[in-house]
Amino acid sequence: MLEARLVQGSMLRKVVDAVKDLVSDANIDVSSSGFSLQAMDTSHVSLIAMHLRADAFEHFRCDRPMSMGMSLANLAKVLKCAGSDDIVTLKANDDGDTVTFMFESPKEDRVSDFELKLMDIDSEHLGIPDTDYCATVTMPAGEYARICKDLSSIGDTVVISATKDGVKFTTSGDVGTANVTVRQNTTADKKEDQTIIDLKEPVALTFALRYLTSFAKATPLATHVTLSMTRELPVMVEYAIQDMGHLRFYLAPKIED
């Protein structure tokens, strides 16, 4: 029996809205540690790894680990029916082929429940090694989203180059070329405007912009985003889910022939 009650139910909707265009169906794995989701897009170029810790839930009961295969588009439709301040409770039987979502308004004057059919999805989990990244940059999530949007109007490939002077995003296309450089800014009076760069050694990687732009759909989740890079490894783009967990995106680089 699974029963999990999330007071900030809106976080679930923000996570699903952030990933549903990249991955259509996914297995949500539940264990005593919480909820996890790992899935790749169809081209296996990008991967999402989400974890929501059990202690994020006001009530969490998972008698035995289970994997719930879902269409993320259908899950998004169900979560759209929740009020932004609703408490969301998930319930599923161990051998069940459905999962029930219950939405309660804060004043408990409105309760609704939606039952979603589960699917059999063969999961292709990859082992993501813990990496000591050469460069990590934590910047305002809105800033990252804006860079992706602006550069996408110029080109479809971006070189991200982290040096001691800052992190430079470069693209070029028929229109011309564009450079955006983001510098360390730890003196901003508002914490959410700060940009922190931790550089162990310079690194430059090339990526397809459309994936980085898709990752920016997670912007409503957090004030900051962290990009972590190491030579010839996928970039990790990470959004914290408040203090409950994280939503990580990985994107394979383009390798110069």
Partner: peptide, 14 residues
């Protein structure tokens, strides 16, 4: 010309 890598080349199967 740059070739798009796939994740399997970087992350092993579990």
């Amino acid at each position: 010309k740059a070739t798009q890598g796939r994740l399997e080349s970087f992350f092993g199967p579990v």
